[in-house]
């Protein structure tokens, strides 16, 4: 079940980009760029567990599909849905 893309500005930042990069520890990581309602951007880097949890919670099966999802999905506990 795909989760809705919650792009209402009242909800705050949304995911603008999500790409796979190389981590300092030799593992692939998910580099997520957030865009805030005021136009500012920040970046958060997710390790394997956090990255997979985000993809699961957003109901997507590839990183690029994370674009448009709200920031708080990043912090949510793992949902019971499956992709």
């Amino acid at each position: 079940m795909k989760q809705s893309r919650d792009t209402n500005a009242a909800d705050g930042a949304v995911i603008e980009r999500a790409e796979i990069g190389g981590g300092h520890d030799g593992q692939a990581e998910l580099v997520v760029t957030l865009r805030f309602p005021g136009g500012g951007r920040s970046r958060v880097v997710l390790d394997t567990m956090a990255g997979m949890r985000l993809m699961h919670n957003c109901g997507v099966d590839h990183a690029a599909a994370l674009v448009g999802h709200p920031w708080h999905r990043i912090l949510e506990e793992k949902r019971s849905c499956s992709i």
Partner: peptide
């Protein structure tokens, strides 16, 4: 909640 969205690094670690 506002501060949280600006400081995800504090919630992406143990203990969150």
């Amino acid at each position: 909640e506002q501060l949280k969205s600006w400081n995800l690094h504090i919630f992406l670690r143990r203990p969150p």
